[in-house]
Amino acid sequence: MPPRLDATLVPTRGLPTRGLSAHGLPTRRGALKLAGLAAFAAVLAPRMALATEAQVADEMKKLFAGKTMGAGKIKLDMPEIAENGLVVPINIDVDSPMTEADFVKSVHVFADGNPLPQVVTYHFTPESGKASASTRMRLAQTQNVIAVAEMSSGQLYSAKVQVKVTIGGCGG
């Protein structure tokens, strides 16, 4: 077993990642932050390959090949501005009666500015009662998060939000 699994419970927000990017890669932003300039250190593009809108589109094409995407039904709730790029709350809520005849089968979440386009995939059942879930995700930079709900009928619905990642400071 990898020793990491022995990790004692640490606060959810609190890994020792100060000065590291949302994906644990040291960035110039991280270096600035460690140097104490964080109040005015800009969000500098991390030196890693990041997913693009095209990659997200490719991934969605693979999953949903050619099906039309409806609007509405699915609500993606995230803060407009991330307070901590390492831990950004994300809440998904799909409007559905969640009966055997009509329920939400799955929800796929993508991000176009992280190293990988996929974030999470949920599988619901009528026993869920409500097609709603919350988790917390990393955001390497300001980007779009896209969620696609797949209904038991095969119908798809999507929602997209932009979340801003800023270093902040100056508020007053």
Binding site: F40, A42, V43, E80, I81, K164, T166, I167, G168, G169, C170, G171, G172
Partner: peptide
């Protein structure tokens, strides 16, 4: 640029406050 967007983003929900 980062600070400017916190003040002059046209959507107030994306503003961060301060001058």
């Amino acid at each position: 640029e980062d600070v400017a967007d916190n003040i002059f983003n046209p959507d107030p929900y994306f503003q961060g406050g301060g001058d």
